[in-house]
């Protein structure tokens, strides 16, 4: 009788453990799956053309957007400085996601100060270098060392792809 009770006690204790562990670890697993499927290397920019039915790395792609993605690791680098030109009037945004896929920072073209944006990414608790061009650089603090930066560039005028392509390619990591 005692053994049967032990069986059910262990089972019912393991149930919520399995439930909440799954919920906790799933986003981290999915983040690593995205990196694996897209063959991403840390701290490099990857540009993606407009999604089609052949785009199967990330669910629910928006076919009107050119995406660029950076898988970052701040344990390998003290900081990450990125820069990009912004389009004249089309929507553009940059979103920062931590290791569990939460979006902790986002700004779009209308919220940024100039048409050439610089963003310095630092781990929370670190301080930006004193020689930073503060007037023209946004500083973002990452809650976890690993995460993803994702830019979205809206392309409504598909006949003008070369223009949007140039804007997209201007998004780089400054060495």
């Amino acid at each position: 009788m005692k053994k049967i009770s032990l069986f059910f006690i262990v089972f019912f204790l393991a149930l919520p453990l399995g439930y909440y562990s799954f919920l906790y670890f799933l986003p981290y697993y999915i983040m690593s799956e995205v990196a694996r499927r897209k063959q991403l290397t840390y701290n490099q920019v990857y540009h993606q053309s407009l999604p089609t039915d052949a785009s199967r790395a990330i669910v629910l792609p928006n076919p009107d957007f050119m995406y660029s993605i950076v898988l970052y690791d701040l344990s390998q680098k003290e900081s990450l400085l990125i820069q990009s030109n912004l389009p004249d009037s089309s929507y553009w945004s940059v979103g920062f996601y931590d290791g569990n896929t939460s979006n902790y920072w986002v700004k779009n073209d209308q919220q940024l100060k100039s048409k050439k944006v610089k963003i310095l990414l630092l781990l929370k608790g670190k301080h930006p270098p004193k020689d930073i061009d503060a007037a023209n650089t946004e500083v973002v603090y990452a809650p976890t060392p690993k995460g993803i930066i994702l830019t979205r560039l809206l392309v409504l005028d598909k006949k003008n792809l070369s223009y949007f392509d140039a804007i997209q390619k201007s998004f780089v990591i400054v060495p």
Partner: peptide, 20 residues
């Protein structure tokens, strides 16, 4: 195995399955 590891594994699998 029978009264600890088995129900533990079973609970983890069922819990994860329910979450999924």
């Amino acid at each position: 195995l029978l009264f600890f590891l088995f129900p533990l594994s079973l609970g983890l699998v069922v819990g994860s399955g329910w979450a999924y």
